[in-house]
Simulated assay, not measured.
Amino acid sequence: MCIAVFLWQSHPLYPFLLFLNRDEYHNRATEALRWWEDGETVGGRDLVGGGTWLGCTKHGRVAFLTNFRETSSFPDAKSRGDLPLRFLQSQKSPAKFAEEIQEEIALYNGFNLVVADIFSNSMIYITNRPSHGDKLVTQVSPGIHVLSNANLDSPWPKCLRLREGFKHLLSENGSGEFPVKTMVEEVMTNTVKDQEPDLPHVYPPELEYQLSSIFVESPTVALPFPFLLLNLFPMNTLTHGPRCTIQGRYGTRSISAISIKSHGEVCFYERHLEEDDSWKEHTQQFVIQNHSI
């Protein structure tokens, strides 16, 4: 589970600005923000599946992913984190990449994927769980967008709170340079939760309540229906019986921001949770190579 808010092609200085929280088990092996072995790509890595939830390249390719909240899944599905990895390491345009993977998206559990090429001003949203009548692939329009665990810009209360908080910060800072780190702290650490009538009612309400804040910190939760949670929790973390307990803490493991300026300067910031429950910061800065946006 994750939540992201982003600004696309609608600011004079920032063609792209993204804030993203990654929610995951605290004990899931994860590598913090760094340059990868190819020397071209920067991001964190999931050391269990081998993929990533967010990455960027020196040539201005960006990809990020969220899981889709649903009541069924299959354990032999392909790793969703492989999808942003494949785009970042390919040379295909966002549209061509989306066309390429359409034949295989049924092999994955529910996902939302955004892929972008900053230089060509192209951003595509891909999902294998479209709303009724919607397309699998959609070109993202300029403006502010929020992506959580339903379709892009779904009006979940946490998404609306995030949109409004982000919009307020943009208006406060006008057309000048943004204090990105301060902005991240303002909107992405919000712990306000929803009451039962406002929950999406996909999972049991006691779990959805814990997941209804922008910044998630959930203790071990007792659940009456283990089969509902295979998207969120791997099969081997559930104890079957009349009631089951999810083993281990779950919540926001990292807060990330990518800002890209009109002259191609990229700042990738991450604050992530260490094993000792301390928070550590990393920042990578570079200029998109061989391109003028």
Score class of each variant (00 low, 15 high):
Phe16Trp: 10
Ser256Asp: 13
Gly241Pro: 04
Pro226Ser: 11
Ser171Pro: 00
Trp36His: 12
Phe225Arg: 14
Asp76Met: 09
Leu169Phe: 06
Phe6Ile: 06
Gln102His: 06
Trp8Lys: 03
Lys167Glu: 15
Phe215Ala: 12
Leu199Gly: 03
Leu232Asp: 01
Gly241Leu: 11
Leu83Tyr: 07
Tyr14Leu: 05
Phe178Glu: 01
Thr30His: 06
Leu13Gln: 15
Trp36Ala: 03
Thr245Ser: 04
Ile126Gln: 08
Trp36Leu: 03
Val146Phe: 02
Ile126Ser: 08
Pro15Glu: 07
Gly165His: 02
Leu88Trp: 07
Pro205Ala: 09
Asp23Gln: 03
Leu47Glu: 15
Glu208Pro: 11
Gln139Phe: 07
Glu274Met: 14
Phe225Val: 13
Cys267His: 10
Leu147Gly: 01
Glu274Pro: 01
Glu274Ala: 15
Tyr125Asn: 12
Gly49Arg: 11
Asp117Ile: 02
Leu230Cys: 05
His291Asp: 10
Gly81Tyr: 02
Ser72Asp: 05
Ser292Arg: 13
Gly174Asp: 08
Val140Gly: 01
Val5Arg: 00
Ala257Gly: 10
Leu85Ile: 02
Tyr14His: 12
Lys96Glu: 13
Arg243Thr: 14
Tyr269Glu: 09
Leu20Tyr: 14
Pro234Ser: 04
Phe87His: 06
Val48Tyr: 13
Ile260Glu: 11
Arg45Val: 13
Leu136Pro: 00
Asn190Tyr: 00
Gln247His: 12
Ile288Trp: 12
Val202His: 00
Ile124Leu: 06
Glu275Lys: 15
Glu177Pro: 10
Phe286Cys: 09
Thr30Arg: 09
Phe74Arg: 14
His26Met: 03
Asp153Pro: 04
Leu207Ser: 02
His282Thr: 15
Phe286Ser: 11
Gly55Val: 05
Leu147Asn: 00
Asp134Ala: 13
Met183Ser: 02
Pro179Gly: 12
Leu65Phe: 05
Gly251Asp: 01
Ser90Gln: 03
Asp76Ala: 13
Ile288Gly: 12
Val184His: 00
Pro94His: 04
Asp276Asn: 15
Ile105Val: 15
Gln9Glu: 14
Arg243Tyr: 13
Leu85Ser: 14
Glu281Gln: 14
Asp198Gly: 14
Asn112Arg: 09
Ile214Ser: 04
Lys158Phe: 04
Thr41Glu: 08
Leu83Gly: 08
Ala106Leu: 11
His272Leu: 03
Gln284Arg: 08
Thr283Tyr: 04
Val192Lys: 12
Ile144Met: 04
Asn21Trp: 05
Leu152Phe: 04
Gln89Asn: 14
Val216Trp: 07
Leu54Gly: 05
Asp194Trp: 03
Arg45Cys: 13
